Computed example of a mutant assay.
Amino acid sequence: MYPSQRLTHLTSAIFTTMNQMKKIVEQKGIEVIDLGIGSPDLPPAPHVRQALQEAVAREDYYGYPTSEGLIAFRQSVANWINYRFGVRVNPENEVLALMGSQDGLAHLTMAWIDPGDVVLVPDPGYPIYAASVHLAGGEVFPMPLKAENQFLPELENIPDEIKRRAKLMILNYPNNPVAATADLDFFSKVVSFAKEHQIIVAHDLAYSEMAFDGYNPPSFLQAVGAKDVGVEFNSLSKSFNMAGCRIGYVIGNQEIIKPLAIVKSNIDYGVFTAVQQAAIAALDGDREGVNPNHLSKVYEHRRNVFIEGLNRVGWFIPKPKATMFVWAPIPSGWDSFSFASTLLKEAGVVVIPGNAFGQMGEGYVRIALVRDENILKEVVRRIDKCGIFSRK
C-alpha cells in the first residue's frame, strides 16, 4: 500500500524539517524564537470576541450551516469591499464564504482544472498555489518573481504555447513570501492579458490590511474589466487576527465562483455560524469605526525595529511596504537551507528557507514579524552574537 503520487509534489518537507530541528535545539535547553510560520500573535478586537462568545451561547447555532455562508455574512463582506476599495459585488452570487482563503484557493483548481491544463503560478509563491494544481492533476508553469522586476511576473516572457494552454493564473499582492506590492497599472495589464488568452485570474489579497508608510494596497477588482476575468480571495485571519477561526471569502465573477461553490457543497457544510457572526462584527465594526485597524501601525513598528536593528549588525534588508513578512537576501557563500539551519542551531531563531516557496526563492529566507518588538530586538542581538555575518 502506498499513498497517491500527488503527495510527492507537496512542499511541506522543509517546514517539517525546520520544526524537527527546532525540537532538537530546544532539547538542549535553548529557548527558540520562532519567526517561521505567519500566525498572528495578537487577539481579535474585544467586540469581535464578545460577538463570538454570545453566538457560541446560542442553542440554535449548532446545526449544519450552509456551505455558501450566511447571507448576513456575505452582505457584510460586500459592504466592507465597497467601503475599502469602492468595488461593488452582489452578496447573493458574487460572494462565497470560505474556511479561510487557503480553503478556497485549494479547491478552485478542483473546480476548474483537468489533467493537462496549465496554471500560471508565481515562483516564489505561497505553497498552496502549486500544491492545489498538483492535487487537481494540472500542470504548473512557474512565473519567476525577480527583485530586478519588483517581484512582478513578466507576462511577455510566457511562451506562446503556454499562453494557449493556460487556464488559470494565480497572483498575490501584497505578496507572501516576497512582501512585494502591485499597482493598478499592473493589474490592468493582467486583465488585458487574461482577456486576450482566455485565462481566469485568481488574486489572493490576504494582506490588504497590513501596509506601511501610507501605502494602500489596491484590489485586483478595481482594475477596469477585472470582474470579467477574475475573482479575489481574502481572509479575516491576518486582517482581524482571526486565523484560528478559519473564515474567509472569495468575490468576483459569479460564473467562476459557481463551480467552486459546487465543489465545496460536496466537501463541507460551511463555517460555524458563531464564527460567521464574529466575522460580521469584525467587518461591520471596521466600517463603523468601532474596530479601527491598528495592525498596520503595529507591524510597521515591528518592521522598523527589526530591519533597522539587522542593518546595524550587517544584515542589509530592504523595508517592505506591506505584509507581516520580511524577504531577506542571505550573504554570498550560503544556500537558503544551510543559512536558516545555522541561525537555528547557533542563534536559536527559526526562519524559513526561501526555496520552500519555489526555486526562485533560493538565496533568501522568509521571516515572520509575529513577535513583539522586545523579542525582535532579542533576535537581532542573537544574530549579532552568533557572528554569522562576520564569516567569509
Rank of each mutant, 00 (worst) to 15 (best):
Q20W: 15
I24W: 03
E92I: 08
L10D: 14
V313H: 12
T17I: 12
K392G: 13
V313I: 13
E288V: 01
Q277Y: 01
V140F: 11
P217L: 05
G354P: 06
G248T: 07
P115T: 06
I307A: 11
T342Y: 15
D204K: 09
Q359M: 10
V121A: 09
Y64M: 06
I256C: 08
V349G: 14
D213Y: 09
A328C: 13
K195V: 15
M169Y: 00
S12C: 10
Y2S: 14
V275H: 11
G333S: 13
P159C: 07
E59W: 02
Q222L: 02
N304H: 04
E288R: 11
V313E: 14
L108N: 03
I81H: 11
F389P: 07
C245I: 00
L105R: 08
K195P: 01
K385A: 10
Q222A: 05
T323S: 07
E68G: 05
V56T: 01
V275N: 09
P142T: 09
L168W: 14
Y2C: 07
R382Y: 11
P320M: 15
A278K: 01
D384S: 12
D160L: 00
N82C: 06
V89Y: 06
F15D: 11
L155W: 00
V298N: 07
F212G: 11
G289W: 12
L369W: 10
Q53H: 00
A55D: 00
P153W: 02
V370G: 06
S332T: 15
R58D: 04
L42S: 04
A131H: 07
F73T: 06
V231L: 11
P40F: 00
K146G: 08
S132Y: 09
N291R: 01
V140E: 13
H301E: 10
S235E: 07
E92M: 07
T342R: 15
I200W: 03
Q102F: 14
R49E: 03
I128G: 08
M210A: 03
F389W: 05
F337R: 05
R165C: 00
Q102T: 10
D372C: 03
G100K: 08
I33Y: 14
F15M: 04
Q27F: 12
P142A: 08
I128C: 05
E139P: 00
I113Q: 04
Q222E: 08
Q276N: 00
L168Q: 14
P259R: 07
N374E: 13
D372T: 07
H9C: 06
H9N: 12
A111L: 08
P44Q: 04
K227T: 07
S336A: 02
Y83T: 03
L120T: 00
H134F: 11
E26V: 14
D204A: 06
L369F: 13
V190N: 01
